[in-house]
Design a binder for these strands. Structure first.
Length: 1145
RNA sequence: AGAUCCGUAGCUCAGCCUGGUUAGAGCACUACACUGAUAAUGUAGGGGUCAGCAGUUCAAAUCUGCUCGGGUCUACCA
């Protein structure tokens, strides 16, 4: 390795420039590839790259999740693992289709008409990697190391073949099945809608619909007998609340007609009604009342909690209403004010009660129902927990075709299914006056008459409507046609994830979720409430479902490989006389539409089979990447085995039910394994005001600009340290600037400082490593702190807490290394000869810098490598080309000295206190003072302070420190309770004791200290206080200026004696001369001669400290002149004098 | 509607798990210092109903419940 003699020095901190240089260096040396290959033979650490879609531009939110992924991979590499990172691209799916349609100015309906499926898909394929260049660029510039030479691409035949294999495995296990599901459907557009489409802005609109409370007439039989009995006995009568009900009470039952009330906002679904659903634990009541439209007596059943929606119960507590309650008043005319409660019961009590069909026609006759669903038992009361008492009547009109819940409960009770609306959105034939009418105005008819109103009117007339009104609610609309969506039964293929739900829950518990709550809460709940995975998509650009079946649907096959397809096609060719094989050669093969749809296969009985038209959910594509990226099981079996499951994945929290779920589901289903052991879900990146970034708001941050302007490292450091990855990040450019200035600026300064003096002294770590124990206190201290930091950073990184790791490092660099170690040690670097102490200082600072570069390498890969390489170029301590090829620092526990770190904290606090006192009395630091007094509360405290005494004296410029022993009576003390200890002991007496302690005199405190305990009577009972029960600290030293922080108190003797003043003058003078040296552009080592014209007092001061002055300013001579006309005038403590500083030689 | 995260100084965040009496830091602002690291640094100052309410406790930013506000995901259902 080429060695440099000198450390490289820079003219300024320009992070982007650094980075370009480092990038070129990486490319040239193939640093990434080497970082992987250097770990050949070591334990692999498996990482999965969640494939981004390259049909859109990368945003700043991609930078954060990729930073997270990158830093973990870099860290693990430095920890000795081999971390391969195969990249990938997600290439299928709706966003791509939509993008293409927008570009071509077409809609879905035009596919197959204006443009062939073939052309359309070719366009999609083209669009898919449109921004790949931009992605590659951001990947490179942000320093994300991922292997993009051989990425997996989801549209490739090999990739799809693995998907087919997985699907065929599922099929073999009986986990892939076809069924009807209720999906959002747009009759106007003639297509099903995905949840994504339904979540487009503006699809949910507030609309006013005609809603009806329909009356379903109960049939008297064994199940419902108790209701009719209650009508005959008219309830148990005596719980009357309101008078004037004699009439009601005396009358015989006027009718036995009994109705279940059920509310709907879509009356058009009523002809398809097959059931009524009640909640098992909801309280229902049977009420005698009358029909508000026809004024005929009726009995109705509804949820008790919803009585007041229909009945005038002003000021009456519903819960107090019991059977027998009667009311006949006229308070609110809008509601019914005449009722009697005849019975009360739970929903489960009326399970199975039958009722008459509400709107019987030819098309929905029992005969038709039986034909559609043999054995179906419709028109019954069902029980399910989805029913609430939020709205309506607590009884849900159930039309299985038009609601997911309805479908589910209908299936449970086998009530059959009626779909009285066709795909155009109009009623089918055989529904009397409603036949062929559109259920919503789908065709923009000018004189459209709302069929829902007509249905309601009919119900009213027939004593089948209890209440009809306009109801405003939010309802989804098709984002393309703006027409209301309806939920409609469509054929779809499902994966039976519910079959292994328990196993998925169980395996999830073994996954390390960051943060934990996402795994337990969001993901855990999602698993608990899982439904089967609806795989089908009616689209064009995606992975085709590999199922072929005969026209009669009797025979079907699920193809699991290309070879199987070829064999099947050959067989079909032979028997059916086709020539398909040419479409299936390696060159011509394309497993997309329309090509695969053209392949005809042969059924076992010799019939042709066609592929079912569905594509599969793109989430299956990405969830299958652990297998498909290797083309498993068709090749690379070893690669797969070594890379499953993943040790670590990371994506945005929005992927919880996306990628995280599909990975988990497929792995559980087919491999009975988790797909990943640790998953980090990061939060969103918001703008600085906390708004979501969106193109519409124009608050999107361009990651290219950010990185070019501030550098990738500053951006990465900011993203990681500002907030935990899983918290949302309010992205503010100012924050990056701060990181740049504060963290990188400081580190850069520290390096520059080191390089400057090392180059002067020729330090190259050639000397033997000086044992830490032989180094000065402050060196041992910074090395102890450094190792403490190393220890913590390792712990945090192992725990996937990079934010904490970064903050610890940041704190060390700013507070300890720069603001204390370097500041206090500056003289050691530029004073004196190149001997032991100086070498100690160089070795110590070097070790700090070198260790820090390795610690920050995962988070800030560029700057760390630049500094590391510059250091290593001179010393050659590592045989490595890059910081990313070396090992991560491991803490040397033997160097960690907690007492030392503690006393240095004392020194820092003491110095800070003295400086603040100096400030208070306006004495500058350059003016020496004689003495500082510190009360030592214990022997150990005194010992601790003595060890750092010299540092404090130098830092605050005082001559001596004097300690006051604990038993002196000179200082006044204060006492306060040790709450933790006393609270446990005293409990409720705490307050009294606390108050008593506040009243303690100096004598009381002294007594307690002397005796070791104190008898304090509280409420007549004695309380014995031990010294450990209280905290005593010094407060004041009479006659001194004091300051304190915690238990540390310092006092300063502010008397300036003539000697001190003279020394102050001398130091002030040195300072001025140094400034002149610097201003004159002298080198650090230049020797000078000095001429001074000073007056009496000042002259004496300077003469007295002549040796000191000459040593400080590297002067060979200091001569006093009477007058120097052309000298430089300087001001020493308000005295003006002239000097001349001449460079020698 | 459900789940989940978040709410502490003008801004960005610690502290909360494990309750303890003056609630911290950085940035920004103001003033004063310092100066062979200088696009730095120190000291001091102002700035807080710890979102709100209730509870548990001798003691609550911290534990519990509810409410409000913001984000995300899921759902939208009579």
């Amino acid at each position: 390795m080429a060695m440099n003699a000198k450390y490289r020095e820079f003219t300024g901190l320009n992070l982007p420039a650094f980075e370009q240089e480092v990038l070129a260096n990486w490319t040239e040396k193939q640093a990434f590839e080497k970082s992987v290959s250097l770990r050949d033979g070591t334990v692999p650490f498996v990482f999965y790259e969640g494939p981004p879609s390259a049909n859109g531009m990368p945003g700043i939110h991609h930078v954060i999740s990729r930073t997270l992924k990158d830093l973990v991979c870099r860290y693990k590499t430095m920890k000795g693992f081999q971390v391969k990172r195969k990249g990938g691209w997600d290439t299928h799916g709706l966003p791509i289709e939509l993008g293409v349609e927008k570009e071509l100015g077409i809609t879905k309906e035009d596919i197959g008409k204006k443009i062939s499926v073939e052309e359309y898909n070719a366009k999609c394929r083209e669009a898919v990697l449109r921004y790949k260049d931009k992605w590659d660029e951001i990947t490179k510039k942000m320093g994300y190391w991922v292997d993009l030479n051989d990425p997996y691409i989801t549209f490739k035949n090999d990739y799809i073949e693995t998907l087919w294999w997985l699907l065929s495995e599922l099929y073999k296990k009986g986990l892939l099945y076809e069924s009807v599901s209720i999906q959002p459907y747009s009759p106007a557009a003639g297509t099903g809608l995905s949840s994504h489409e339904l979540n487009q802005p503006g699809t949910y609109k507030d609309v006013k619909d005609t809603s009806a409370v329909a009356m379903f007439k109960a049939i008297r039989n064994a199940k419902s007998e108790f209701l009719f009995k209650a009508i005959e006995t008219r309830g148990s009568s005596d719980n009357t609340q309101i008078s004037n009900v004699q009439q009601l009470l005396d009358a015989k039952p006027q009718t036995s007609d009994t109705f279940f009330l059920a509310w709907t906002t879509t009356p058009w679904t009523l002809p398809s009604n097959l059931g009524l659903t009640v909640g098992p634990n909801i309280d229902y009541v049977l009420v005698e009342t009358y029909n508000p439209y026809l004024h005929v007596p009726i009995n109705v059943v509804l949820a008790k909690q919803l009585l007041n929606k229909y009945f005038d119960l002003t000021d009456i507590d519903i819960n107090s209403i019991k059977t027998g309650f009667a009311l006949d008043s006229h308070i609110d005319t809008k509601k019914i004010s005449k009722l009697k409660i005849l019975a009360e019961f739970k929903g489960s009590d009326i399970e199975g009660c039958e009722y008459e069909q509400l709107l019987p026609y030819e098309a929905n006759s029992p005969k038709v129902i039986e034909e559609l669903t043999p054995g179906a038992k419709p028109f019954r009361v069902l029980v399910d927990s989805f029913v609430t008492t939020e709205d309506g009547t607590g009884i849900v009109h159930t039309a299985p075709a038009f609601g997911a819940d309805d479908f589910k409960v209908g299936k449970k009770y086998n009530i059959g299914i009626l779909t009285m609306v066709d795909r155009q959105g109009k009623f089918v034939d055989g529904l009397g006056e409603f036949s062929n009418r559109y259920v919503k105005n789908y065709k923009d008819e000018k004189d459209y008459v709302d069929v829902n109103v007509d249905i309601s009117v009919k119900l009213k007339k027939e004593n089948r409507a209890f209440k009809v009104e306009k109801y405003e609610h939010s309802y989804p609309h098709c984002w393309r046609t703006d027409k209301p969506v309806l939920y409609y039964p469509l054929d779809a293929w499902f994966i039976k994830t519910t079959a292994i739900k328990d196993r998925m829950v169980e395996l999830n518990k073994t996954i390390n979720w960051k943060p934990k709550s996402t795994g337990e809460g969001r993901f855990g709940n999602w698993l608990e409430n899982m439904v089967d995975w609806n795989l089908s998509r009616s689209r064009y650009w995606g992975t085709p479902l590999p199922i072929w079946r005969t026209d009669d649907g009797e025979e079907e096959v699920c193809i699991g490989s290309v070879e199987e397809l070829r064999a099947g096609a050959r067989k079909a060719d032979e028997v059916l006389g086709l020539a398909q094989s040419s479409k299936l050669t390696a060159d011509s093969l394309d497993l997309h539409k329309p090509y695969v749809d053209e392949i005809i296969l042969l059924s076992p009985s010799g019939k042709p089979m066609k592929r079912v038209p569905d594509l599969i959910d793109v989430w299956f594509d990405s969830g299958a990447m652990p297998y498909a990226q290797w083309h498993y099981p068709f090749g690379n079996k070893e690669d797969f085995k070594n890379a499953f499951p993943a040790d670590f994945i990371a994506e945005g929290v929005d992927q919880t039910r996306g990628w995280f779920y599909t990975l988990h589901a497929i792995a559980c289903l087919l491999f009975d394994s988790v797909a990943y052991k640790t998953v980090v879900s990061n939060g969103l990146v918001l703008d600085k005001n906390g708004n979501k970034m969106s193109k519409r708001l124009g608050n999107v941050v361009n990651p290219f600009e950010t990185i070019e302007k501030f550098g990738a490292d500053a951006t990465r450091w900011y993203l990681i340290t500002n907030a935990s990855p899983w918290d949302n990040l309010k992205f503010d450019i100012e924050g990056i600037k701060e990181v740049q200035r504060k963290f990188f600026g400081t580190l850069y300064n520290t390096y520059q400082f080191f390089a400057l003096y090392s180059n002067v002294d020729g330090f190259a770590f050639k000397e033997a490593y000086i044992p830490v124990s032989e180094r000065p206190e402050i060196d041992r201290w910074i090395l102890s702190s450094l190792n403490t930091v190393v220890k913590k950073v390792n712990e945090y990184m192992d725990d996937y807490e990079p934010t904490q790791a970064g903050r610890v490092i940041e704190d060390f660099v700013d507070e300890h290394l720069s603001n204390w170690y370097v500041r206090l040690c500056r003289r050691r670097f530029w004073k004196g000869e190149y001997e032991q102490d100086k070498i100690c200082a160089y070795q110590t600072l070097y070790e700090c810098l070198e260790t820090i570069t390795r610690l920050i390498a995962p988070i800030s890969p560029f700057f760390s490598d630049a500094v590391f390489q510059n250091l290593n170029a001179v010393t050659g301590r590592f045989n490595a080309e890059s910081v990313h090829h070396v090992d991560f620092p491991v803490a040397n526990e033997s160097v960690i000295d907690e007492l030392l770190e503690e006393r240095m904290q004392l020194a820092q606090d003491a110095s800070s206190l003295v400086l603040s006192l100096r400030k208070k009395v306006n004495i500058k630091v350059r003016q020496p003072l004689q003495k500082v007094l510190i009360p030592a509360l214990s022997a150990s405290m005194k010992e601790q302070l003595q060890k750092v005494e010299d540092l404090v004296k130098a830092e605050v410029n005082v001559k001596e420190i004097e300690y006051l022993s604990p038993d002196n009576t000179f200082i006044s003390k204060k006492i306060k309770p040790n709450f933790v200890a006393l609270g446990k002991k005293l409990g409720p007496k705490m307050k009294a004791v606390s108050a008593a302690l506040a009243q303690f005199t100096q004598e009381d405190i002294a007594l307690l200290e002397k005796e070791g305990q104190y008898n304090l009577p509280v409420d007549g009972e004695p309380v014995i206080l031990q010294t450990t029960d209280v905290e005593i600290s010094s407060e004041d030293i009479p006659g001194w200026t004091v300051a304190n922080k915690g238990s540390l108190t310092v006092a300063v003797d502010v008397t300036i004696t003539p000697e001190l003043e003279a020394e102050g003058n001398a130091r002030e003078f040195v300072n001025r001369i140094q400034k002149i040296r610097k201003d004159s552009g002298f080198e650090l080592t230049d020797r000078v001669s000095l001429k001074v014209a000073a007056a009496n007092g000042m002259k004496d001061s300077l003469a007295q400290f002549k040796d000191y002055i000459c040593a400080e300013i590297l002067a060979d001579s200091l001569d006093f002149e009477a007058e120097i006309p052309d000298g430089i005038q300087i001001d020493i403590n308000d005295v003006l004098l002239n000097v001349i500083v001449l460079k020698k030689g």
